[in-house]
Amino acid sequence: MWRNIASNFLTLMIVVLIGAAAAIAWARHEFTGPGHSEVAQCVRVAPGASLNAVSKQLAEQGAVSSGYIFRAGADYMDKSRDLKFGSYLVPPKASMQDIVNAITAGGPSSCGTEVQLLVGVRGNAILLRDMNPDTGAFEEMARFNPANEEQPEAITAAAQKPDARLRITMAEGVTSWQVVEGLKAAGFLSGEVAEVPAEGSLAPDSYEVESGADRATLLANMAQRQQTILATEWEDRDFGLPYETPEEALIMASIVEKETGVAAERPQVASVFVNRLRQGMRLETDPTVIYGVTGGEGVLDRGLRRSELNRVTPYNTYRVDGLPPTPIANPGRAAIRAALHPDETDYLFFVADGTGGHAFSRNLEEHNAAVARWREIERQRGEPADSPVQGDG
């Protein structure tokens, strides 16, 4: 009898083990195999959300077939504590493993309703965008200029949604005053700004924020990011540059940023100004003069006057030697890198070439010919001639 009991127990254990193995194999296939959703899904991870809450949400919206298997798989991958706040687009048939990777990798949110403040050189805009699941692309739904337009109701309602993404996007080359004015226009932010941050100290980038985020705290985050970028790039700078401090490199980067809108030209533009400093020539660049006129508050929507070019100010690089005393805008990382890794050239001049870029010259004769070509282009376009320039475009 005992032999029969032992035999039956052994048989039962084998069946149990086979069943367990089959269950594990099935669960593994469910976790790693193609998902059940036939459409793209926008997966949102709320600030401070637990894996349990996220797994329930995913199961409810049909992104995963089992919240339990999803949690178990995330635990097995050792990623259960790595959730990153944001909204993430996952394609049709995405596996649970793919979703775990998406919501723990972080990075910019890629789907959902988004209200975005764009801080630009020539003005600000607040816009509403939504992701089209069929294309995976954001589509603009509404936009307004906070300086002279009423905020559309659609944007107001969207900003109040608990799952809406709020973003501040700061363009390269904006001034610190422009950033502060832009943040004041964003009704989904809170708090006062005691003073405008130092020019050049803020990192142009895209910042995802929560509703009610404090403006001063956001500015501090922007400043910390710029400080980190500058320190990293300064550490890796080329040998023999005519800058004694990272702050001087930042000033140069801001000039490069304002001088060209063509990304590939930045190292060439930087080489012109570096060559001028090395030879003891004045920089002779309009953007510094303009900053001396405006103080970084707004845009000068006219050409420089002869009196402004002749006036001696710390920012008039036609009249003073070396760099101006401060940056003239907030440069992006690419401009900082160009200032610290300029091209090796013998260029001393540049001027607009009519294509959006610049013609670079090695001597005054070449430059005067390039200026003449540009003046002819202006004449043909019916545009007023710019002020005479040396190092400026």
Rank of each mutant, 00 (worst) to 15 (best):
Q160I: 11
R71P: 03
M281R: 07
A25Y: 01
I255R: 03
M77R: 09
M222D: 11
V262T: 13
A359P: 04
G112F: 07
T288A: 10
Y88H: 02
R276F: 00
A253K: 08
R302N: 03
A74F: 04
A46L: 15
K161W: 15
T313C: 02
F31H: 02
A186G: 05
K56P: 04
K161D: 15
E247Y: 15
A263W: 13
V180Y: 01
L323G: 03
V115R: 00
Y291M: 04
H358Y: 04
A59V: 10
H358D: 00
F9P: 01
P146G: 08
S271C: 07
T245Q: 07
E257L: 08
S307R: 13
L250K: 09
G136T: 06
G212Y: 11
T345M: 11
A159H: 12
P384T: 09
M13V: 15
G112W: 09
I168C: 07
G62Q: 07
E30Q: 11
A220V: 07
A22N: 05
R3E: 09
P91K: 15
F31G: 02
L250R: 07
G19S: 10
P325F: 02
G280A: 03
G106T: 09
V45N: 08
S80N: 06
G280M: 04
Q380M: 05
G261W: 00
A263T: 12
L166G: 02
V179E: 07
A220H: 09
V274E: 01
L277H: 01
I229K: 12
V54M: 04
R379L: 10
M222C: 12
L364Q: 09
P324V: 11
I168W: 02
E247T: 08
S95R: 06
A369K: 14
G382P: 02
F31D: 01
A20I: 14
A203Y: 15
E233F: 00
G391S: 10
V45G: 07
D205P: 09
F138N: 09
A223C: 13
D82Y: 01
A231D: 10
S65A: 14
P133S: 01
I14V: 15
L17G: 13
V180I: 06
G200M: 11
F85R: 15
R379D: 13
V90A: 00
W234H: 10
K56W: 11
F350I: 05
H36F: 00
D214I: 03
D134P: 02
Y291I: 06
P162H: 10
S80G: 02
G35I: 03
T228Y: 11
G354A: 05
G295A: 03
F239L: 14
V180H: 02
E366D: 11
C42V: 01
T228I: 14
M281A: 04
I290W: 12
G35C: 04
H358E: 00
N316R: 04
I255F: 01
M170T: 14
L218W: 10
S387F: 05
Y207P: 11
V193P: 09
G136I: 02
E139W: 09
A105T: 10
F138L: 09
E208D: 14
V15R: 01
I126A: 05
T245F: 13
E195A: 15
G86C: 05
E378P: 03
A125L: 14
E365Q: 12
L117M: 10
V115W: 01
A263E: 02
A264M: 12
T11W: 15
E365H: 08
E199C: 08
R167S: 06
G200E: 07
D238I: 04
